[in-house]
Design a protein around this nucleic acid. Structure first.
Lengths: 348, 348
DNA sequence: TTGAAAGCGCTAACAG
DNA sequence: CTGTTAGCGCTTTCAA
């Protein structure tokens, strides 16, 4: 016969568990578990247990609890890249709201790769996240549609996808603002540096821009359209290709983001053209460096969208169906586009 | 007498478990568990089990496994903020290396708040992370010392703390490079916009800068020292305070980072001073926007440090004690400091 | 209120 | 190689 385990033995090595606290207080594990989830002052036992737990340095084990309850107090956020400042800002807002409500946030970056999107989301779900914030949705909604089948509450943020709850900026309006502004400045030969088409964000901005031009009987020629992407390097390369083909434009809209615009500015400078003086340049997002650079750009309420997304998700976890929100962007005019065409150096 | 549970009953609703696969194949749970961890082609049973698992849509439950094995296949990274591009770059490298080795990464941002540092690390540890990457260490090593007591493998990155394995840039050398450069350009009245003193990074840069000046019998006066922080807003405010007090400087080193330098540039512009022409400006990190702005700065191998940290941590998890690495930075001279003092507009 | 007991899904001895 | 048995630490019926 094997001797019965000695339940009063001090817990082996390692962190104290409920058992440790139970043995210490002479109570049962279940009583301790309950007591710990009441306020410390609700009850004599609760007080006793909280004190003992404190003294013993007990910390709850969320993974054990999670195994049992099938919820984790964690929400997952999937971004395309956290080196994109906009995604980082959203992440930080989400984190802040979540932590204030007793949740924690796990992030995952996917680089917009569909395989990574599946893998990361599956991991998050395996880890029992109570909800998902999707910041890297694609226009073709296959990804978002799949997320919706998972049975986990979710909301999209920044990037829209048809038929899903999303907290987004009105990017088409943003594109229009830029188009109207440049036309008002006298520009007629307009170039466009696009962002990735799979993102509703850059797609809609380009559409709005084109729509504004169309309203004035103008258009961006094929010739003056190039891919500018989301990075300084891709923006620079795009502008170099553009310049290699034509200099018959007086303004360019970098609809991907300000970083692409920074790259475009570099390329223009290298080509001996002064942004704002020879070619007007407009970006999107109004990141910090846009100010000292004097870059005209469109400001969108990124932090607010992150906060809205987090709140909507927390609501969804409580059973309140999330409802999408669209916020309006504003144009921020700076030196890179504030000189009317007529006064620019090489205006034709 | 309670009837024995019907083990052959189909698993209730919900995801298939090992039990589901076991029942389906007529094998035991443990056999299935083992088979699933071998290659599918190692064995007739393994093949059978893998096929069944596939067919039933079985996905392993990492939280259950983690509860049992006390390891998770997850490494934790704690950063001060992911909106700091440098921290984001490090995160992405860590993530990449980790994922390639079958690990996943959980991030947490602390804003350098000690309470948040404890909370977030505790959370990560509760979630059974197999190792920790600390990117927000402080110079007073209380935080790092505490992390070391946790019994979880860890490495520091970017920010050093005495007595801990760290992958860092030689920031003092970086500060020296800046000092030598500005002196060589003819500057004698030098201002310093500091970063937070709790970060070894900005502290060491300031020290190196001062040491270089001292080598030439120069010094930064109290009068010309201001806090510039790590953000555009704080850099701008710092420069405004500086300008409010004195214009007797011809160059400024913003040792916090390039964002602080961007803020300083804005403040100078607002004051009617042209960076590079009236006042030389130098930043640190060489972020993307430094190029179009023509900001002189110091380039440090951030991505490499992230990669090194991840590899060192993975080694540490295997039992190989991590050893710190120091990488040398390089100066990148651009327009904001390339005009010698003698040729600058308001040189005295 | 409290405690005993069962079990979340998995892995790890230990026998066969 | 296989199955049996025992938990990991926690929550949650269910009785007392």
């Amino acid at each position: 016969m094997v001797p019965p385990p000695d339940n009063d033995a001090p817990a082996a090595l390692g962190r104290p568990t409920l058992r440790t606290v139970a043995d210490d207080t002479g109570l049962s594990v279940s009583t301790v578990s309950r007591a710990l989830r009441r306020p410390a002052d609700s009850n004599a036992t609760a007080a006793l247990v909280h004190r003992a737990a404190q003294r013993l340095g007990y910390l709850p084990d969320p993974v054990a609890a999670s195994l049992r309850t099938r919820r984790s107090g964690v929400i997952g956020m999937v971004a395309h890249s956290l080196t994109d400042i906009v995604q980082a800002i959203i992440y930080e807002q989400v984190d802040q709201v979540a932590v204030a409500s007793g949740f924690d946030v796990l992030v995952a970056a996917t680089k917009d790769d569909p395989a990574a999107q599946r893998d990361r989301v599956n991991l998050l779900v395996s880890r029992r996240v109570d909800g998902l914030i999707i910041a890297d949705a694609h226009r073709d909604a296959a990804y978002a549609d799949w997320v919706a089948t998972l049975g986990v509450p979710y909301v999209l943020v920044m990037r829209n996808a048809p038929g899903h709850p999303a907290m987004v900026c009105d990017d088409e309006a943003g594109g229009r603002l830029v188009g109207e502004h440049l036309i008002a400045q006298g520009h007629r030969e307009l170039a466009l540096l696009t962002g990735p088409d799979y993102s509703a964000v850059s797609f809609d901005r380009a559409r709005g821009f084109r729509a504004a031009l169309a309203d004035h009987g103008l258009a961006v020629s094929e010739q003056l359209t190039e891919f500018g992407g989301l990075h300084t390097a891709s923006g620079q390369a795009g502008m170099e290709r553009l310049l290699g083909r034509s200099r018959e434009f007086t303004a360019v809209f970098c609809c991907g983001n300000d970083f692409a615009a920074f790259g475009a500015v570099s390329a223009l400078q290298t080509a001996g053209l002064a942004p704002g003086q020879d070619v007007a340049v407009v970006g999107f997002n109004d990141v910090a460096a846009a100010t000292p650079l004097g870059l005209t750009t469109v400001s969108s309420p990124q932090a607010e969208l992150g906060e809205l997304a987090a709140r909507a998700l927390l609501g969804a976890i409580e059973g309140v169906p999330p409802v999408g929100v669209v916020r309006e962007p504003t144009l921020v005019v700076r030196a890179s586009s504030s000189t009317p065409l007529a006064q620019m150096r090489s205006s034709r």
